[in-house]
Structures are given as C-alpha cells and as structure tokens.
C-alpha cells in the first residue's frame, strides 16, 4: 500500500518546477511507475507533484525542420498511434506499442518511460541493494537471468527497462528539460547513468528538473527504423533482448547505422561494435554474421543469463535480414 504523501497539482509549469525543487518531491506524470516505486518504498517522497494536468506538455508536433517534437506527457499509446510518428519513425511507434500493457500505455507517458526505475527484482523487492543505498548488488551472485550482459562493470547489473529510449537514442533525439536553473537539452543517449558513474542514479536529471518534451531530428533520406523485443511472454513484459535500429541506407548499402539494445545493460546500450561492423557495408549474409558477432563480442554474461549472448545475436540477425528484405522491396 502507498505510504502517506501530500499531493500538489500545479496549474502551470513554473509552479511545478518550484514545487519539485522544494523538498523531497516526486513527479507524478502518468503515475504508472511512480506509484509502484512509492509502494515498494523505492522512492521515499512525502510530496507528490502532479504535472498530469499540464496539457501543454502533451502531443506530437512536426517541427519546421521536419523532425518531431513530442510532449513529455504524451501517452505511450498516443505515440504508438500517432500518424506522424508512424510515418517518420516507424521503429518508435513499434517500440511504443510494445510497452507494458494497453492500460499502462494509455496512462504512462513518454517522459515517464524515459525516467522509469529499473525492474530488477532485488531492487524492486525487499532487498536493501546497492542502488538503494545498501552495500551489495544481490543480482550479481543471485538470480540474474533477466539481468545485464553489458555495461554493468560488476557493480549493479540491472537492465534499463525502457523500450522507447533505445529508439530515441538511435535517432539522435534530445530531451528538453526545465528546472530551477533554467532549461537545457540532453541527448537521450546521454540521459541515463551507468553504474560506474553513479549507482544510485538512473538519469542525469537534477532534483527539480522536468522533461518537457523530446525533439527528434528530421529523418534523413533512406532512414530505416525498427524495434524488436524478445520477451518471456508476449504482453506486459520487459525485454530479454531488444534492439532499436536506425539505418541510413543508400540502395542496399548501409551508410550510417545506429544500433541500441534494450534488455542488455543498465542503460540503453549502444553497440558501437555492431555499428562499425555494419556501416559502409551491404546487408550481405557475411556482413550480418560479422555484425552479430561484433555486437556480443564484449558481453560479460552472468551465471544465469549466458543465453542472452546467442539471443542477442539471433535477434539481431533476424532484424538485419528484415531490414534487407524491406530495402529490396
């Protein structure tokens, strides 16, 4: 059950910023992650500032340059079904439609999806783990079949739960943030914090900062995007292995490749090795094989998640073959 908290519903964004800055406040947007975190005492705020009524932070709009600006309060369903998103970045719509369950997509927001807390069962459970201020990551020696194979540095082995962040990162999107010190923008690729930098933080946002919207640069000619998510059941589940692809194609040649994994690492995991193996090449069987090997070359699997290495390879192979088919069509 939820602990006691006071609830504040500002009418304006500046009120919200002031309220969040003051005291140990937490932001309520859709609330789907927040309420769970309060219930599990992961977030110990006694003050909830609800921005859900700030309608100006909701909706998708085309920018003058031809990119998209998506309000942070846009629901996941809103993104998945938005005609502009579907046309310009089908991979983003695919990712959004794979999030959680229909009801949670109807309620959860883009901002919340980017800022959600990890789903590690030790972190969410009654285990005083490193990320919660304890002195051990239980998952390293424990039940780690759902955990990270990259970027954990044996410090904290959570996987980042977001489906939209990998796609946005691959697209070079930026989050617009407003806070007590003013506004700033942060590349989605730089938004999340690896354990080696700070094991207690998931994002680089300061207390009091609110994501107001996400800017996605205009799609370059020949852009192919996709998102794939392998999971233990086909609804309401986080990725065992997932991949966002943003490939800029010139005929059958890949000019530029962004490949970002979900279910792989404590942050959305950019596979520079795979990108390098792919860039400049055609999507031949040989290239695909090399890319898949490169993608998992640096993996550091744990006792129970060695399967992730072949799973990432296999899933990526399938995705690249799909991309090849699509380009031929």
């Amino acid at each position: 059950m939820l602990p006691k908290f006071s609830y504040i519903r500002p009418d304006k964004l500046d009120q919200a910023v002031a309220q969040i800055q003051a005291g140990n406040a937490a932001i309520h947007a859709g609330g789907t992650d927040l309420l769970g975190c309060l219930r599990e005492r992961i977030i110990k705020s006694e003050k909830i500032v609800s921005i859900s009524g700030l309608e100006k932070l909701r909706g998708v709009r085309e920018t003058v340059e031809g990119g998209l600006r998506i309000g942070a309060l846009t629901t996941i369903t809103g993104m998945a079904e938005d005609p502009l998103v579907r046309k310009k970045y089908p991979g983003l719509a695919m990712a959004a439609s794979e999030v959680a369950s229909p009801q949670l997509r109807n309620q959860g927001t883009l901002g919340g999806n980017l800022c959600q807390k990890p789903r590690c069962w030790y972190y969410r459970g009654e285990f005083h783990c490193l990320r919660k201020g304890g002195n051990q990551c239980y998952a390293i020696e424990g039940e780690n079949q759902f955990h990270a194979i990259f970027g954990h540095d044996n410090i904290c082995v959570i996987t980042h739960p977001s489906d939209t962040a990998p796609v946005l990162s691959a697209l070079g999107a930026k989050v617009q943030v407003i806070g007590p010190g003013g506004g700033r923008n942060i590349a989605v690729a730089d938004l999340h914090v690896p354990p080696r930098d700070d094991v207690r933080a998931e994002t680089v946002l300061d207390q009091g900062e609110i994501i107001t919207h996400v800017d996605i640069p205009p799609p370059p000619a020949g852009l192919y995007t996709s998102y794939r998510k392998v999971r233990a059941r086909r609804s309401w589940d986080f990725a065992l292995a997932g991949a966002a692809l943003a490939l800029v194609m010139d005929g059958d040649r890949v000019v530029r490749a962004s490949i970002v994994f979900s279910g792989a690492a404590p942050v959305p995991w950019r596979s520079r090795e795979a990108e390098q193996a792919l860039a400049g090449n055609t999507l031949s069987d040989d290239t695909i094989d090399k890319v898949c090997r490169a993608a998992t070359a640096g993996a550091k699997p744990l006792r129970e998640n060695r399967y992730k290495v072949p799973m990432f390879r296999g899933m990526l192979e399938e995705e690249l073959r799909k991309a090849r088919l699509q380009e031929k069509a």
Partner: peptide, 26 residues
C-alpha cells in the same frame, strides 16, 4: 517461482510481472 537460493532464500518474484501468467497474447 524463483527463490533467491544462493543468498537470502527469499522469494524474488512475488507479483504478476515477475511471475508470468500467460496473457491473451500467449
């Protein structure tokens, strides 16, 4: 059911997200 066998002996997945029933999609 997943117990934390090697460390605390406690139950890891005591909810319907971590303990996975088939959904309409399965």
């Amino acid at each position: 059911r997943q117990l934390d066998e090697r460390q605390t002996g406690r139950l890891c997945n005591k909810n319907w997200h971590d303990y996975k029933l088939p959904t309409a999609m399965d």
